[in-house]
């Protein structure tokens, strides 16, 4: 699979990682929508169900994503969910954005860009870190 020169992982798996993190952030939207409804009302059940569906989808996707990259690489990208939470808050709930949220988002993005660039790190034994490509791991 095609690799981006600046990344540890193929670009398609990098996109898959970010798609899974978007799903992870959407889970909070459904949770908040459920919180606005009367407990056990049809809409509460709908939003609660969608929250679990998002959680389930993320869990499935996360395990696949982890097969193709190191945990530290995946986790370096995870704070993007804070920024997605801000986007959903503004777009869906018309929440107020303060200057520190915008500045914090820019700093978080800068941190992610610094953290994920720089190519493939080496393992402690000097070999390249593959993040556990299928077939290279221990048989279960």
């Amino acid at each position: 699979m095609k690799k981006n020169a600046g990344l540890e992982v193929p670009i398609l798996w990098f996109l898959a990682l970010h798609l899974s993190l978007i799903v992870n952030s959407i889970q909070g939207v459904f949770s908040k929508l459920a919180g606005r409804e009367r407990t056990l009302s049809p809409r509460w059940i709908l939003f609660f169900g969608l929250m679990f569906a998002a959680l389930f989808t993320f869990a499935i996707a996360w395990q696949q994503v982890l097969k193709h990259m190191s945990l530290t690489f995946a986790f370096t990208n995870k704070p993007i969910t804070i920024i997605w939470g801000l986007v959903w808050g503004v777009l869906i709930f018309q929440e107020r954005v303060t200057w520190n949220m915008v500045l914090g988002s820019i700093i978080i993005l800068a941190g992610i860009m610094v953290g994920v660039s720089g190519g493939q790190p080496e393992q402690k034994d000097g070999s390249l870190m593959t993040g556990g490509e299928p077939g290279k791991g221990e048989q279960h």
Binding site: I107, G111, P121
Partner: peptide
């Protein structure tokens, strides 16, 4: 570089919050 990125992110989370 990754450690630096993570430190910047933690600073960003602090500013955000």
């Amino acid at each position: 570089r990754r450690i630096l990125g993570m430190l910047i992110m933690i600073a960003g989370i602090a500013v955000f919050s």
